[in-house]
Design a protein around this nucleic acid. Structure first.
Length: 576
RNA sequence: GAGGGCGUAGCUCAGCUGGAUAGAGCAUCCGCCUUCUAAGCGGACGGUCGCAGGUUCGAAUCCUGCCGUCCUCGCCA
């Protein structure tokens, strides 16, 4: 159920009957208490067109609009606002429908093939905090898209190619020659990289060998490729381990690294040249972009092949676009990378469209996100200024959650506490990130995200357990067919919010902004807490009908909260 | 120099298809547990929405200029 869409349709019809069919239909949630749940603000804007006073127009619209089934009252306020008070009976009916529907009364959208490119770690190194945002925001959007009925094709565009692999393979070769197994040698990629770098900089002849490896690798030397494959496999497994820890849905089969496009790069450039899109300039193959010219008319330059003949990530990204459009039949593509690459993707899209690598009606959406900053507002680093490994960050989150749990009085076993710490710690890190608008930088602060208060994962998890606890207590005494009766203000506010779930998810899938879902869930949990305080359920003096009705609201809240958290990839707990 | 993002309460952040008195949380202060989980709820305090113009019945939201800040800009990704 999308209440807003329903109201827009009704007002649209009313406006048509008043000869104002082309007028905008501004229906929004009411912001002020006492002004209903929604409001229609279009009367003021029609004053000139209809040559009447706004309040008179509002009255005409109120008379014309058919909302008897949905609203209990329409009132005209201020300069001509129409406040819509939803009918408790209708809210109850819709809630009943949601309860009986595994999809929570949310119809799927017409299915599209949607390619989502996210996570994309560099396999030469360990995953670090810079990959966190892409990974979890991308995964949240993926899950929401799938729920809405789309065919999502995950593409993990891993950095598995490049000159850096020369020194890594040379180093790995020596380790294997010394009878070390790859898994052991590569158990800490960060260390391994550092060792190789030191040898590259200091050891006689090593740099030379590293360069040879690059040449052999690019030349397709079988032995060298096997070594590379070995390295890549181990590194991918590291990432997959992190995905599991993060409760992210990416799998090995979603990997489509840069190397996968190697064979196609020459074709891409040839194709661009043939079409006259790319031309030679200073020995390199470039595309001049008049679309992004400066004030003097000097076009932007986009290099697709270096003067030495080498390819760049621009080439790879063009090959990827073409592959996704033509082989994967993408109707829409979402790419989650940091905001610094915004210009690159803008240019890539322009070139791809010029060259016909992407259909005219195909959507290409770069979804940028800001940097993760420390509490001091500077890029997030370790005490010593190093890069923070993602595994370390996640382990610390779990440790901190464990410490906080230990400080509380409880009767849980050590195993239960460990499981809880895992779910709470990981959930806190993910939620802290997911709940912020993705486009801006955000400040990573342990104390805030684990304070277990306010808009945090633990608060939502706690709200969820409170609901479960009601049902544990109620036992068999729950009538899942009971009629819902909306009476108290808190019940009405809760039921209304429950029916706004679809609005939140639809925004998430169109804008690729999971924080909208977070805000929704926080408001839902918050309204539940208020309902819980105000409306007794299992207490002795509660009438049976009220009790069962309220249990139904609890059930729907639990279903919705649990569903939303699962889309975000945040685990729920039965007790905490 | 050019292009882009950001600037909202002491702090962290929502809101920005233009709508009524700009919202949360934290912090500070005041209330509420002989228990449907107080990791909660109620209340108070706190804002010239960077500055100045413009459009509009109405601007945090749209437009222009300026200030501050971060990022990007032909052979890294």
């Amino acid at each position: 159920m999308n209440i807003q869409h329903l109201l827009i349709a009704r007002f649209q019809a009313a406006l048509a009957s008043l000869d104002a069919a082309d007028a905008p239909v501004p229906v929004s949630k009411s912001t002020r208490p006492g002004c209903g749940e929604y409001q229609f603000n279009g009367a003021m804007g029609l004053a000139k067109k209809l040559q009447k006073a706004p309040r008179d127009i509002a009255q005409m619209i109120v008379d014309a609009v058919a909302l008897d089934d949905v609203a209990e009252q329409l009132e005209i306020a201020g300069p001509g606002f129409i406040n819509i008070h939803l009918a408790p009976k209708w809210l109850a009916q819709q809630s009943q429908i949601s309860l009986a529907d595994p999809r929570l009364n949310i119809p799927p959208q017409p299915a599209q093939n949607i390619v989502v490119d996210y996570s994309a770690p560099n396999l030469a190194k360990e995953m670090h905090v810079g990959h966190l945002r892409s990974t979890i925001i991308g995964d949240g959007v993926v899950k929401a898209l799938e729920f809405m009925g789309h065919n999502v094709i995950r593409q993990n565009h891993m950095g598995d190619w490049g000159t850096q692999f020369g020194m890594l393979l040379a180093h790995l070769n020596d380790k294997l020659a010394a009878n070390e197994v790859a898994e052991t040698a590569l158990s800490d990629l960060e260390d391994f990289y550092r060792q190789a770098k030191v040898r590259f900089d200091e050891e006689e002849g090593f740099a030379e060998r590293a360069r040879e490896y690059v040449v052999r690798l690019q030349g397709g030397d079988a032995e060298c490729l096997a070594l590379w494959q070995n390295f890549i496999d181990v590194s991918i497994q590291h990432s997959v381990d992190v995905y599991e820890k993060l409760n992210v849905s990416l799998q090995t089969s979603d990997v489509m690294g840069e190397s996968a496009y190697n064979a196609d790069l020459a074709n891409v450039v040839a194709d661009l040249k043939e079409q006259g899109v790319a031309v030679e300039d200073q020995g390199a193959q470039v595309v001049f972009l008049d679309e992004l010219a400066d004030k003097n008319g000097k076009p932007a330059v986009y290099i697709v092949q270096k003067s030495g003949g080498g390819y760049l990530y621009a080439t790879t990204d063009l090959a990827a676009i073409r592959y996704r459009s033509q082989q994967l039949n993408a109707q829409r593509t979402l790419i989650f990378t940091d905001a610094r690459q915004a210009l690159h993707f803008k240019q890539t899209e322009i070139v791809a469209r010029k060259a016909g690598f992407i259909g005219a009606d195909e959507e290409y959406q770069h979804c940028p996100f800001g940097m993760m900053l420390g509490k001091d507002g500077k890029p997030f680093k370790t005490r010593t200024g190093g890069t923070v490994k993602l595994v370390d960050l996640l382990d610390e989150a779990v440790d901190r959650a464990q410490t906080l749990l230990n400080q509380r009085d409880n009767d849980f076993s050590a195993d239960e506490l460990a499981t809880m710490a895992q779910k709470i710690g990981i959930g806190a890190v993910k939620y802290a990130d997911l709940s912020k608008a993705r486009t801006t930088d955000y400040i990573f602060d342990w104390d805030t995200m684990l304070s277990f208060e306010g808009n945090t994962a633990p608060y939502l998890q706690y709200a969820y357990t409170r609901i479960q606890s009601i049902f544990v207590k109620a036992g068999a005494d729950v009538d899942t067919q009971a009629e819902i009766n909306i009476a108290a203000d808190q019940e009405k506010a809760l039921a209304t919010k429950l029916l706004q779930y679809q609005e939140a998810i639809e925004t998430v899938v169109t804008e690729a902004t999971p924080h909208v879902l977070c805000t929704y869930l926080y408001e839902l949990a918050s309204l539940y807490m208020k309902f819980y305080e105000a409306c007794p359920i299992l207490k002795e003096d509660v009438a049976e009908a009220d009790k069962q009705s309220r249990l139904q609201l609890c059930r729907l809240t639990g279903n919705t909260l649990g569903h939303g958290l699962s889309l975000l990839g945040i685990d729920t707990l039965e007790r905490m």
